[in-house]
Amino acid sequence: MRRQASMMAILAATAQGGAMAGDVEWGAYLAAECTTCHRRDGSADGIPAITGWPEAGFVAALRAYRGGARSSQTMQTVARGLDDGDIAALAAYFATYPPAAD
């Protein structure tokens, strides 16, 4: 039930915000905070990989953290400091990397 509610919140956040083109250069600047935990090479090592995601999925995930629909205190704190333009920029930046190898 909780998982279904989370997915509904993610879909609602995506629909609510609509598509937004991200500024890759701004995303590269903002990514410094992300890459203190997440690796640019896509390796996980206990922290999920965020490289190569489709931009819409990346945006939906960060909006869900920001809104509290996804649980991770660290990610919620980070996401609450980002506006929609910042999130779109990060999505555009991390999409320039190849997806993580499984």
Results as ranks from 00 to 15, higher is better:
P98K: 15
S6N: 08
Y93F: 14
D45R: 15
V59K: 06
A101P: 13
L82W: 12
A32F: 10
A79T: 05
A49R: 08
G85D: 13
P54K: 09
R70D: 08
A64G: 10
A60S: 07
G57R: 05
G22L: 09
G81C: 06
E55M: 06
Y93I: 00
I50H: 02
A69Y: 02
T77W: 02
D86S: 07
Y65T: 01
A69S: 15
E55S: 04
Y29Q: 13
G81E: 04
P98H: 12
A79R: 01
S72D: 08
P99D: 11
A5V: 11
A69H: 13
A79K: 02
G52E: 13
G17E: 08
E33L: 13
C34L: 03
A60I: 00
Q16M: 05
A5M: 11
A92Q: 04
A15Q: 11
T51E: 06
F58L: 10
A19E: 12
G22I: 01
Q73K: 14
I10E: 11
A44T: 11
I10W: 07
G27I: 01
E33I: 11
S43H: 10
L62V: 02
Y29A: 14
R63M: 12
A60K: 00
T35Q: 01
I10R: 14
Y29N: 12
P48M: 05
E55K: 10
A13L: 03
T14H: 02
P54N: 09
F58Y: 15
A32E: 13
T36S: 13
A101W: 09
I87H: 07
R39S: 15
Y97I: 11
R2E: 11
A19V: 09
I47Y: 01
R63V: 04
M75R: 00
A31W: 08
G42D: 06
G18R: 04
M1P: 09
A49P: 05
T77Q: 09
D41L: 05
V78P: 02
A95P: 04
Y65R: 00
T35L: 07
M1W: 10
A31Y: 05
A69G: 15
Y29V: 14
A56I: 03
W53I: 03
D84C: 05
A49Y: 01
T36Y: 08
D41A: 03
G18F: 10
D45W: 13
S72G: 03
R3P: 00
Q73E: 13
T77K: 12
G27P: 11
L30S: 10
D23T: 03
A28W: 06
T74L: 14
G68Q: 06
Q76T: 12
G17W: 03
A100F: 03
A5K: 14
R3W: 08
A100D: 07
Q76C: 09
T14C: 00
E55P: 10
V78I: 15
V24R: 00
A13I: 04
A9P: 01
I10V: 07
S43A: 15
F94T: 12
S43N: 12
G68C: 09
G52R: 12
M75E: 00
W26K: 15
A101F: 08
G85M: 00
D102N: 11
L11A: 15
A28Y: 10
D102R: 14
I47E: 01
E25R: 08
A100S: 14
Q4R: 09
V78K: 13
F94Y: 15
